[in-house]
Amino acid sequence: MALTYLCMISWDSLQARLNINKIIGSTAEDQKKINLVNGLISAVSFNHEENRKKLISAGIYSDFFSKTYYLLKIIPFCFILLIILATYLRGTIDITTAVIYVSLTVIFILIGPDAYISMRGKKITKKISGRLPFLLDLMNVCVHTGMTIESSLDYLSKEISTVDENLGYVVFKTVERSKVVGIEKAIDEFHQLVPTSEAQSFAMTLKQSLQYGSSVGPVLSSLASDIREINIMELEEKIGKLGAKMSIPLIVFIMIPIVVLIAAPGVLRMISDA
């Protein structure tokens, strides 16, 4: 993790230096460095597109990290594996300890990051979906002021990042893609980035408004209210399940010790009489 962090910091600092030098007018040397690094990374990277989608869903937007994701897992794994093998050959550890160390290395270096990114991706997707009513209300205000759907998304992509970075990034990528493939295709890709029923309703509402020219303001307000009601119902469902979940520690840590305390004197008398 420390190696990954240092690599990402170095790459970001190099890109920041390149952007500064673009203003000054001296970018040739730094551009050569970036091209060299990109060439080396491209030679050893694989599944770049799959990694990029997976990392974007987890809120990690570094292109460098998506290219070197597997590389940053395999190199530490091989290094630790060589250390374990050398230690075993020297006789410092036995075969059982070596197998345990290898298993822990596989879990924490190969399986652990994938599990963490998957869990983080689900959490961020749910968070973005819960923030959609906020986006819908802001779009409703923008539409009522006379802005189109495209211009309102363009404006909100710059402003909403101060409130929610992940939602701001998704809206920003939607605006960027709309300039290349069109707004309807970009809205479909928004649903692909946030694969939830709320995002699907949002995409369908915008597409219907674009296709038929209907007024989108009242529909956005109604959709925001519906999503809020769904979120409240899910919260109430979780609260309702707490009672059943709390009964398990109640039985294990309170009821069973009480039964033991009540039955213990009688059992001890029977043992002593016998």
Rank of each mutant, 00 (worst) to 15 (best):
V216R: 01
E150I: 04
A203K: 14
E189F: 04
L206D: 07
V163T: 13
D188Y: 06
Y212T: 06
Q192P: 00
V171H: 15
V181R: 07
S209Y: 01
V175G: 00
T196V: 09
S151K: 03
E184I: 13
E165V: 01
Q200E: 07
D164T: 12
V180L: 11
I187H: 00
Q192Y: 09
V143H: 03
L167S: 06
E176F: 02
S178C: 06
M147F: 13
D188H: 08
V194Q: 01
I149E: 08
T148D: 02
E150S: 10
M147S: 12
F202E: 11
V194T: 13
E189S: 06
E176N: 13
V216F: 03
T162H: 11
Q192I: 15
V170C: 09
Y212W: 02
K179T: 04
P195S: 05
A186E: 06
H144G: 12
S209H: 05
F202K: 03
T174S: 13
V163W: 00
Q192H: 08
L156Y: 15
E165H: 11
P218T: 07
Y212F: 12
R177T: 13
S215Q: 10
I160M: 15
V143W: 04
L156K: 15
F190S: 01
V163L: 07
E189H: 04
S214L: 01
H191T: 01
E198I: 01
V219L: 14
I160V: 14
E189I: 11
K179E: 11
D164N: 09
S215W: 00
E176L: 08
L210I: 00
V171D: 15
P195I: 02
Y169S: 05
P195Q: 07
N166A: 14
F172Y: 11
K185P: 00
F202Y: 14
M204R: 02
Q200H: 06
E165W: 13
F172A: 12
V170A: 09
L206I: 06
G146V: 10
V143C: 04
G168D: 05
E198K: 06
T145K: 03
G213H: 08
L193V: 03
S178D: 04
K207E: 08
Y212R: 10
L220Y: 13
G168N: 10
V170D: 06
T205P: 02
V180H: 13
F190Q: 01
S152F: 07
T162L: 07
S157D: 04
V216I: 15
E165C: 02
I160H: 08
V171Q: 15
T174D: 03
L167N: 05
Q211G: 00
V175W: 02
Y155A: 12
Q211W: 15
S197Y: 05
G168W: 04
I183C: 01
V171I: 14
S201V: 00
S209E: 00
I149A: 07
K179D: 04
E184K: 09
M204W: 04
P195R: 05
K207H: 10
Y155D: 08
Y155H: 10
